[in-house]
Simulated scan of single mutants.
Amino acid sequence: MFVHKPLRLVVPLLVLIGFLWLIIGSSHETKPNSPYKYKKIKKNDVIPRNLPADHISHYDLNKLASTPMAAYNKERVLILTPMAKFLDEYWDNLLKLTYPRELIELGFIVPRTADGDAALRKLETAVKKIQNPKNTKDTKFAKVTILRQDTEALDSQSEKDRHAFKVQKQRRSQMAVARNSLLFTTIGPYTSWVLWLDGDIVETPPTLIQDLVSHDKPVIAANCYQRYYDEEKKQDAIRPYDFNNWVESEEGLRIASTMGDDEIIVEAYAELATYRPLMGHFYDPNGDVNTEMQLDGVGGTCLLVKADVHRDGAMFPSFPFYHLIETEGCAKMAKRLGYEVFGLPNYLVYHYNE
């Protein structure tokens, strides 16, 4: 009888030890090849984006910064371009930007028009070439997103037709919807800056991003000009192009006060003279390129926005917002949210000349 008693004690004890070993062992990291590998995350770390799909990613937006030393701090920049036509000069200029490509994401939205179909084919060809898996990490962009516009767009995208006064409300409303679709689809919890760069911008300084972020402003616009040949003087010349960068005027406020709720003010048209000071007219060829001026309205040809401004609600109204729409309405929203809006009158970028 006494011989079996030790076994009666030992067997349950061994079972209990084995059960505890299984529990403790299962809490440790699995084999390296396991799809359910648990990766230890240090406190305050951002969970890497390359974990399996069944994991939950955590991003602490309190630690996301938009600083004047963006490249040094490895801040992500999202370049967004509504593209009705694909211009080789736009793409070539984009590839000349010196901001690290592994920190740049690109986003495009292309209308469902004949021109849009042609632009899409050319854009995809250009993107596939630069994003080729054989290319090194520093030559490829971090991510490229191309959207097809699911709303209407003007049939004619010629400069004359799209800038006609009578189509401005329709055109700007369509553009606002396209910009919002592009923004809301592509902005991520790791995006620090959003650079709006029109597909018609064919020449900028290579240091465009570094130059704009160095001002550390919530919203800041470059001065968009256009190169052309002056037939009278028989020489190359430049002229202002984007007149949506402006300072509010008393006349502008007066006109707005007489308008109905659904009416908008569009700038630089003789049919509606506001006498607003336009940044395009403040260019000084001998002035400091870092000169800043406060603005009330902005265009979208070359506009840098801190991502938090968009996250806080500054989007592109497709409806009259204080009688403003699209980019100018976005500037108004930003100011209503407490952000300041600036422009650089002596810092030029150039629009394609049709």
Results as ranks from 00 to 15, higher is better:
256 A>L: 08
190 Y>A: 12
162 R>K: 15
48 P>C: 01
6 P>E: 13
134 K>N: 13
166 K>C: 15
288 D>S: 07
102 E>N: 14
281 H>D: 15
324 L>A: 03
272 L>I: 07
228 Y>W: 10
19 F>E: 05
18 G>F: 13
85 K>F: 11
82 P>A: 07
60 D>R: 04
5 K>N: 09
222 A>E: 02
32 P>N: 08
152 E>V: 14
184 F>D: 15
321 F>H: 12
98 T>Y: 05
22 L>K: 09
83 M>Y: 02
239 R>H: 13
273 A>C: 11
96 K>V: 09
151 T>P: 00
30 T>R: 10
354 E>W: 10
268 A>E: 15
71 A>T: 11
329 G>T: 01
46 V>S: 06
307 A>D: 08
289 V>R: 14
62 N>M: 09
64 L>G: 01
221 A>L: 10
249 S>N: 05
1 M>G: 09
125 T>Q: 08
145 T>Y: 06
201 I>V: 11
129 K>W: 09
309 V>I: 02
34 S>V: 11
267 E>V: 06
270 A>D: 12
336 R>F: 04
259 M>H: 07
155 D>T: 15
51 L>I: 12
311 R>Q: 02
183 L>A: 05
92 D>Q: 10
210 Q>D: 14
98 T>H: 04
113 T>Y: 04
117 D>I: 08
326 E>P: 00
106 L>S: 00
118 A>R: 14
231 E>Q: 15
339 Y>Q: 08
201 I>Y: 00
113 T>R: 00
34 S>L: 06
162 R>V: 11
112 R>F: 09
198 D>W: 04
164 A>L: 15
261 D>M: 07
97 L>Y: 08
1 M>Y: 14
64 L>C: 10
1 M>D: 10
272 L>C: 06
245 N>I: 14
165 F>L: 00
209 I>K: 00
283 Y>N: 02
44 N>I: 15
29 E>Y: 02
235 Q>E: 06
324 L>N: 04
133 P>D: 01
55 H>I: 12
301 T>A: 13
312 D>L: 01
154 L>T: 03
52 P>Q: 01
185 T>P: 12
309 V>H: 00
245 N>F: 03
162 R>W: 06
186 T>C: 15
298 V>R: 02
258 T>G: 07
335 K>Q: 12
89 E>Q: 12
298 V>G: 00
260 G>L: 04
189 P>N: 10
174 Q>E: 11
327 T>M: 11
347 Y>I: 03
111 P>C: 03
96 K>P: 05
99 Y>W: 02
217 K>I: 07
250 E>W: 08
139 T>E: 15
18 G>S: 11
301 T>E: 09
19 F>D: 13
81 T>F: 02
220 I>T: 03
68 P>Y: 13
30 T>H: 14
267 E>A: 05
215 H>T: 09
250 E>S: 11
59 Y>V: 08
202 V>H: 02
255 I>W: 02
